[in-house]
Write a protein that binds this DNA or RNA. Structure first.
Length: 353
DNA sequence: TAATCGTGGAA
DNA sequence: TTTCCAAGATT
């Protein structure tokens, strides 16, 4: 079977098995002449970076409801968008989302570019996302390379070189399969195959549309591919967070600097997070209570054990850091998860209530 | 190039 | 409980 027959087999499978997703125009609808909205394609692809479909769905629906078009999003307040992104992770995506929306709205007449190269120049759009938008929204024959495509190609061609060294080879193989007709549907077909049948563990080779031509299956090593270089162990860091509640119900919070971990997000003032014991750094000179509680949270590259300090303070308190946010303006859902965990523990304590 | 950057679900 | 991993981008 040649490359073109493989892509044709994938498209035939997709025509029957395409998943219904909020941002997707299905193959039947699309062949009736309906084009996907580039704004929705872009928004979904940014949200889907290193994030599962299940986690994205509710966020996508809410963003579309709040901001139906790119000009609506471009006009939103930074804090509002960051608050709505809270919990989804990788917060640089939200900062770049707003930057990109404003470039498109203000410099590009509210229209996304239709070429891979021009898309690639926008904030937060890298090689994968540029190819995905070009293919899905504009039906350009771009080759999308994500974790799904890497896995499918590694198995289809039995590539035994470990990732990430195998990336160039896998990219070349994927480029060879990309068809000139229906490249948008094809891109989604490969990713759907990788997400459902050609899954990382226990791939369903028995019902795969490419089972007859898959070299890894022929060798009996499909579940073992792609191989990956060993990962480094995660160290444990320690920190302290200070949760102060004023007698009128306001909470002492700060907006974190744009750069670095949880950049641009709302959070509790605290110490640095270090592998050795952190030095106390209270944002307010009051009597802090140690409730003996600790938040445990794991980030991409370290474990965190976050000790809590709580205080109940009067309305004349003047903090060195952060600001008191009135209870009516504070939504715990605006917090990134680690900060929300701290709130969940502290808000139940009598010391702050 | 390699490190940084979140989170939640599955096994 | 721990590890793995998900439609990656940036520096």
């Amino acid at each position: 079977m040649r490359d073109q027959e493989k892509s044709t087999a994938l498209l035939a499978w997709y025509d029957i098995n395409a998943r219904s997703l909020p941002w997707r125009v299905g193959p039947a609808t699309r062949q009736a002449g309906v084009r996907p909205d580039p704004y929705r394609v872009w928004l979904s692809e940014i949200m889907l970076q290193q994030t599962t479909v299940a986690a994205v769905k509710a966020y996508f629906d809410r963003f579309i409801r709040l901001w139906p078009g790119v000009t609506d999003l471009a006009a939103a307040e930074d804090a509002t968008v960051m608050g709505e992104w809270a919990g989804l992770g990788y917060y640089a995506r939200a900062r770049n989302l707003l930057k990109c929306a404003r470039v498109v709205a203000h410099d590009l007449n509210g229209r996304f570019p239709d070429s891979e190269e021009a898309l690639r120049a926008l904030p937060g759009i890298g090689p994968y996302t540029a190819a995905a938008i070009a293919a899905i929204a504009f039906d350009r024959p771009a080759t999308v390379m994500d974790g799904n495509v890497e896995r499918v190609m590694a198995r289809l061609f039995a590539v035994k070189t470990p990732l990430p060294a195998a990336k160039p080879e896998l990219k070349a193989l994927a480029a060879g399969l990309t068809p000139k007709t229906r490249p948008g549907d094809y891109a989604q077909a490969v990713m759907d195959l990788g997400a459902t049948i050609c899954s990382p563990r226990n791939p369903a080779c028995g019902i795969c549309p490419l089972r007859a031509v898959c070299r890894a299956r022929a060798e009996g090593i499909a579940p073992e591919l792609p191989r990956k270089s060993p990962k480094k162990p995660k160290p444990t860091r320690h920190g302290t967070a200070y949760l102060a509640r004023r007698e009128d119900g306001a909470w002492l919070l700060e907006t974190r600097p744009d750069k670095g971990l949880l950049g641009g997000m709302l959070g509790w003032p605290g110490t640095e997070w270090t592998e050795s014991a952190p030095k106390e750094a209270p944002p307010l000179r009051v009597a802090w209570h140690d409730p003996g509680l600790e938040v445990r949270h794991t980030f991409t590259h370290f474990h965190l054990r976050l000790a809590l300090r709580v205080a109940h303070v009067t309305t004349d308190a003047r903090p060195d850091r952060g600001r008191f946010l009135p209870a009516a303006q504070f939504r715990p859902s605006d917090l990134p998860t680690v900060m929300r965990k701290a709130y969940d523990l502290a808000s139940r304590l009598p010391a702050v209530n």
